[in-house]
Amino acid sequence: MVFGRKRRQRGRYLSAVADRIGARNGVVLRDAFSGGKGANGPLVLGVITLRDGENAEVLQAQIDAAVAAGYAPPRRREANGAGFVHDPGLPMLIIETFAAGTVIPHHGEVPAGRTGVVLSLT
């Protein structure tokens, strides 16, 4: 049961980082772990939310929150996302945003005035 204990510890750590970066701000559509067992790869925490505001503003606010929590500013940023991959002591963080009118896969269309945010912590 050592693996189960390590998985729970890693899950608590990922959840604490998610809290520090405000991953659950807005309306939470999904907050779940995947992987982390045997050949399923590393444990991943995925959080999907709907937030008030325009895509660019919401993305910048999430990037700012990650930087405030200790992540280095992303080297590459796209219109709908950013990644934080090599930050010692912190899990890999991928941010993807969905503007109003676009579809978040398996969760539907983002309503007007909102932005969908998908965060993955590994």
Rank of each mutant, 00 (worst) to 15 (best):
L121V: 04
R7F: 05
L59S: 03
D87R: 14
L119V: 03
D19L: 11
G81S: 06
V110F: 04
G36L: 13
I48F: 07
G26L: 08
T122W: 05
H106T: 07
S15N: 13
S120P: 00
K37G: 07
A99K: 12
F3S: 09
A56K: 11
A65R: 10
P91W: 11
E78T: 12
S34H: 04
R10V: 04
P111N: 06
G113A: 04
N40Y: 02
H106A: 14
F33R: 01
L90C: 02
I21E: 02
G11I: 01
I94G: 02
I104R: 03
A72L: 08
N80Q: 14
V117S: 10
G35E: 07
P105Y: 09
A100Q: 01
D31H: 09
P91A: 14
E109G: 01
P73C: 13
R30I: 02
A32N: 12
D19V: 09
P74I: 08
V44M: 03
A61H: 07
K37N: 09
L14Q: 14
R51F: 02
K6I: 11
G38M: 10
H107D: 14
E96P: 00
P88Q: 13
V58P: 06
G11K: 06
V110P: 02
V118C: 07
P74C: 07
L43D: 09
A16F: 00
L45V: 02
R12G: 05
R24A: 15
P74R: 10
R10I: 00
G22T: 10
D31G: 05
F84E: 02
H86T: 13
V67F: 08
E57H: 04
I95E: 00
R76C: 14
A82Y: 03
E57Q: 15
A18T: 03
N25P: 03
P73D: 10
H86C: 12
P111Y: 07
F98S: 07
N40F: 06
G89L: 12
R24E: 15
E96G: 02
F33N: 04
Y13R: 10
V28D: 08
K37L: 09
G108E: 11
R75A: 15
E54H: 08
A100K: 01
R75M: 13
R12K: 13
R8C: 08
E54D: 15
V118E: 03
G70H: 09
G38D: 12
I95N: 00
S34E: 11
L121Q: 03
G22K: 05
I48M: 11
G53F: 02
T122G: 09
A18K: 09
S15T: 12
E78Q: 11
F33K: 01
G22F: 04
D87S: 14
G113R: 05
V2R: 06
G83E: 14
R76I: 15
L14S: 13
F84I: 00
E96T: 03
A79K: 08
N55D: 15
L59W: 05
T97G: 10
E96V: 01
N55S: 15
I94M: 12
N80T: 06
T49D: 13
F33L: 07
Q9V: 05
T115N: 03
A23C: 10
